[in-house]
Design a protein around this nucleic acid. Structure first.
Lengths: 248, 248
DNA sequence: CGTTTGGTTGAAATGTGTCAAACTTTGTGG
DNA sequence: CCACAAAGTTTGACACATTTCAACCAAACG
């Protein structure tokens, strides 16, 4: 079955429009893109480091993480993926994958053949720009994470990532102003922040004690958005959204 | 004055060919690209976070660093730039810069108007792919650095960056098999690795004591390449070079 | 030469890791 | 709907990598 999304709730379209204004015909072309939809359980690899894929995928629902591992098995999450994201879009140009992508929650993903994507880009040159831009924004997030991991203490690091996730989810209509679902365990946060699970736990308690957030199960509630932004030294410019919708 | 490089030593061409095979006409088109050459002293900003450039630049000679800073002034270097690199190529698609680029050594850089680059990409669609690919490889390096900073101890981190620089410089013909010039101070390494200058110093001494490297002034000499690669947990796949020339 | 920049050293402070156990929630099958 | 297992969270004590601070040294430079 093809993806059953009303045009304006199609995750791919929605995501691209959050960073690039689409014309009607381009939007339609995206909706018409041949796509093989797969439903995945959580904690499953979608693609693996070393793969040489002939297709890439878009997240239709659910969350993923993009990760790498050191020789002795320590893993670092380098990005979280939310609906609309294409975590291995790079494979269009880079033959062998330098990252793995796993599901953090049950997901449905749409596989798109590289040749179909090439085709689309030929027919709609502005879409080339849109996809290129998407990979560039992804790169900007890597840079910010590098600053985050390299130069901020764990407490601030955690706050920063929470800010980012909330803003990104708002941009694709998957978060209220100050709350969202975040199916990310403390162990996964640890791998994203370059710390241990134990420390993530302590730092989260601090954030809670300071009245900045509630976080229980998959539910994140930001009690003090200004405070959290400040704690995370967060400025959304690097996300390069067409227009950050200011949260009330 | 236009860049006085014999065709095959033109840094831009050389760099692109290290990750993308060019046809003759494409190579010529690159050589004909209008370019304003500027000579810069070391420790100067080329572009700054927040800028909205109408051009981007290619490094013709010298080294740069791309960096970001936290609100309280700590800086993180997210990439080193070597001749042929275009550290702010992203500005072609992202209006406002989320990074600053500074010279690490005296540099000559060539500024290219965005419109001229657009033009070129129109006339030679494969060059669009080449430039896109360049930004993707840059992204792959960010990811590896994230793993490096997040999950490796300072000693291994240092070894990793040294391996990377040597391989990248070899790819553009600026390093012998096991030695190169590296105008990077310990303070700058510190900002790249997310540690302090003091610690970089101690870690370098360890690398020297273990007989892996000599590093004095700007000169890096790798005494034990296999040992350094192992210490750095280094696998060059993520650099996506067309063909890693195996060092003897 | 004196001045600046970058490198080196040591001792004490600290953020984060490690280990190991207990607790809580979630999901599943009987 | 309970019972149990599995997964995730929380806690404490201690170890350790790295920071901090402060001084000193060496090389480069005008």
């Amino acid at each position: 079955m093809p993806a059953p999304f009303p045009p304006d709730h199609n995750p791919l379209v929605r995501k691209l429009e959050s960073i690039f204004p689409l014309h009607d015909d381009e939007r339609q072309a995206l909706l018409d893109l041949p796509m093989q939809v797969n439903v995945l359980k959580d904690d499953q690899d979608v693609v693996r480091e070393g793969d040489r894929p002939s297709r890439c995928f878009v997240i239709l629902s659910g969350f993923t993480c993009t990760y790498k591992a050191t020789g002795d098995g320590k893993t670092q999450i380098v990005a979280f993926g939310v609906p609309g994201d294409m975590p291995d879009l790079q494979s269009l140009h880079l033959k062998v994958l330098d990252i793995s992508v796993a599901t953090l929650s049950p997901c449905s993903v749409g596989f798109i053949q590289h040749e179909d994507l090439w085709d689309l880009c030929m027919r709609y040159p502005r879409l080339t720009a849109a996809f290129w831009r998407e990979t560039l924004v992804e790169g900007a997030v890597f840079r910010e994470w590098l600053l985050n991991v390299g130069r901020r203490e764990a407490y601030h690091r955690m706050a920063h990532v929470l800010c980012e996730m909330l803003v990104r989810l708002r941009a694709v209509g998957l978060a209220e102003d100050h709350a969202c679902n975040l199916p990310i365990t403390q162990g996964e946060f640890a791998d994203a922040l370059g710390v241990t699970t134990v420390h993530v736990n302590r730092v989260l308690q601090e954030l809670r004690a300071n009245g900045l957030i509630e976080l229980k199960g998959e539910r994140l509630n930001v009690l003090d958005w200004e405070g959290l932004k400040q704690a995370g030294d967060f400025d959304p410019t690097y996300l390069h959204l067409v227009q950050e919708r200011p949260a009330a």
